[in-house]
Structures are given as C-alpha cells and as structure tokens.
Design a protein around this nucleic acid. Structure first.
Lengths: 159, 159
DNA sequence: GTATTATGAATGAAAG
DNA sequence: CTTTCATTCATAATAC
C-alpha cells in the first residue's frame, strides 16, 4: 500500500483531525475488497438477467399458441407486420438483450459514432436496424436510467 | 451519469497526522469509479425487478387462460394474486378534479419539474400519488385534448 | 363471459 | 442532453 507519495498526484487524503477528533477512513485494501465485492455482485446479477431472459424467451415460444399479441412469433422474431402500419422501429428480444448488455458494460457512457456503427452491424444480424435507431436507443436508455435513479433518490433521501 | 463535478466544494483535503501515521483514503476519482460500478449494479438490479414483474404478469395470464393453477410454481407455493397483480395508479375523484382544473388553468403551459413536484404534494393530501403519475397524467391529458380537437375539425370539415 | 372504451404507462423519434 | 410528441400496450371500468 502506498503511503503519502500518491497524495501529491491524485490528492489522496487521510483522516481529518477536526478539533481533535479523528474520523476513521477506508484504506486502499478495504477499497479494493469493496470494489471486488461490487464487481462480483454485478457479474452474478448479469448472469441472472441472462437466465431470466432466455427463460422468458422460451415462455414466449410456448405462449405463441395462446394468440397473445405480445407473444406473436412474427413480432418476436423481428418480422414486421406487412399489412399493418408500423412506423417506428421496435428492437427484437435478441437485439434488446444485446443493447442492454452493452449499456451495462458501458455504465451509461456516451457512444462514439464508430461504436454506434459497430453495434448496428452486430444488431443487423438479428433484424432490421439503423444507426439512428441505436443512437436513439442509447439516448432514451440513459434518460430512463437517470429518471429511475432520481426516483430512487427521492425515496431514500440523499446518500 | 454525471461527471465529476465541482471538486472544489467537496474535495476532501489533507491527510490526518495520527500519531505520525498517514492513512491513504479514497480520492474523488476513486469515489467516482466506485460510484459508477454501483450504478451499473443498480441498473441490473432494476432490470431484475422489471423482469420479475413481467414474469409474474405472464404467469397470471397463462394461468388464467388455461385455468390450471397447478402449473404456476409461485401459486403452488401459496403466493396470492393480491401481491402478484400489477397495479396501476388511479386518481381519486378529488385528485382528478384538481388535475382537470389545473389543466384548464394552464391551457398548454409547460409544467416544470418544480410545478410537478408542487402539484404532487398537493394531490398527496387526497391519496397516494407519485411525480411520475402526475407527469404521465398531463402527457395523456394533452394527447386526449389534441385528439378531440382533431375529431372536431374532421366533423366540421365534413359539413 | 366477451367485446369495447378509457386511460396509465412505456418508449422510439424528434424538437429544443 | 433534456423535453415533448406520437404510438402502442396493458389494464380497469363498462357495455353488451
């Protein structure tokens, strides 16, 4: 563990003696442990998401026979209703899964145009999609995430 | 997600000389990284909640269509429909009256977040309500008004 | 019991 | 990026 030498570069600060009181603070080792725990939770949660989604996908195929529009195989597989007037793009389950995974990995960071094009090509293998669709999706996804965190904060007060 | 902001105000300063030892603590940058990881975990957890809700809803739907509760593992475990049914907010008559009055008074003026919060607090005195409920209500109310005026025009044109 | 309507909610796309 | 609009889906209420 580094001592005071790092403080000059990145401003590592120690416990603060305030009026004679000393506040305990996290050490580098404690921070690393905490970070590893969080990463572990993230990985586990992501796996759970994958499992749930594949399970739901199977349910959708079973539910086809019920005639539920939301389980419509044609819609689910990305084939748009030819006769119907569907104007706006709707991501297929597979595309949505890929997008969500990318969003989690990026943790909400903005994508460059090059990244967008790359992602679009990948998604195009699972259904029709344009770069604008991908760009809009990330825009809306960030807004959605922000809105939810705002709601959460209002519930739990400030941390 | 917010970038680092105004480190001048909350910039933790100075290590504490405690018996001559200096303990390294988290820098602003480290805190930001950690916060991003937590955000990622939060996003995934939120997805799990959403998926659980849709899963329950689908189970309810299939169970109702088939009329066979035994195929529902959650039902078999004693989970009642009360907790599983997805409930949506419904404004009370008093709340609805207040909202309609505000809509007439406003007549198209944009509602700021502050206004929304203010209205929400007022409505909360007459029943449970969130800011999202209020926001959605005004969205849908505007659409309804616009739709009706369009219908009126189509009628007048046909005369 | 089924079909229809009204409307809360979700979201892609566009405007600002 | 934020806000708004247009469309769609799901559900509660209602009519048949």
């Amino acid at each position: 563990m580094d001592e005071r030498e790092k403080s000059s570069t990145n401003g590592v600060s120690g416990g603060c003696a305030n009026g004679g009181l000393v506040y305990p603070v996290m050490t580098e080792e404690q921070i690393q442990i905490l970070r590893h725990q969080i990463v572990a939770y993230t990985i586990i949660s992501e796996q759970l998401v994958q499992m749930y989604k594949s399970f739901i996908a199977q349910q959708d195929f079973i539910g086809m026979e019920l005639g539920n529009p939301s389980c419509d195989p044609l819609m689910a597989l990305g084939a748009r209703k030819i006769s119907s007037r569907r104007q706006r793009w709707a991501p297929t389950p597979v595309q949505l899964q890929i997008l969500e995974n990318l969003f989690i990995q990026g943790s909400g960071t903005t994508r460059t145009k090059e990244k967008i094009k790359e992602i679009t090509n990948e998604l195009a293998q699972h259904g029709p999609v344009t770069e604008s669709n991908v760009y809009n999706w990330f825009q809306n996804r960030r807004a959605k995430s922000k809105k939810r965190s705002a709601q959460f904060q209002s519930k739990t007060e400030s941390i």
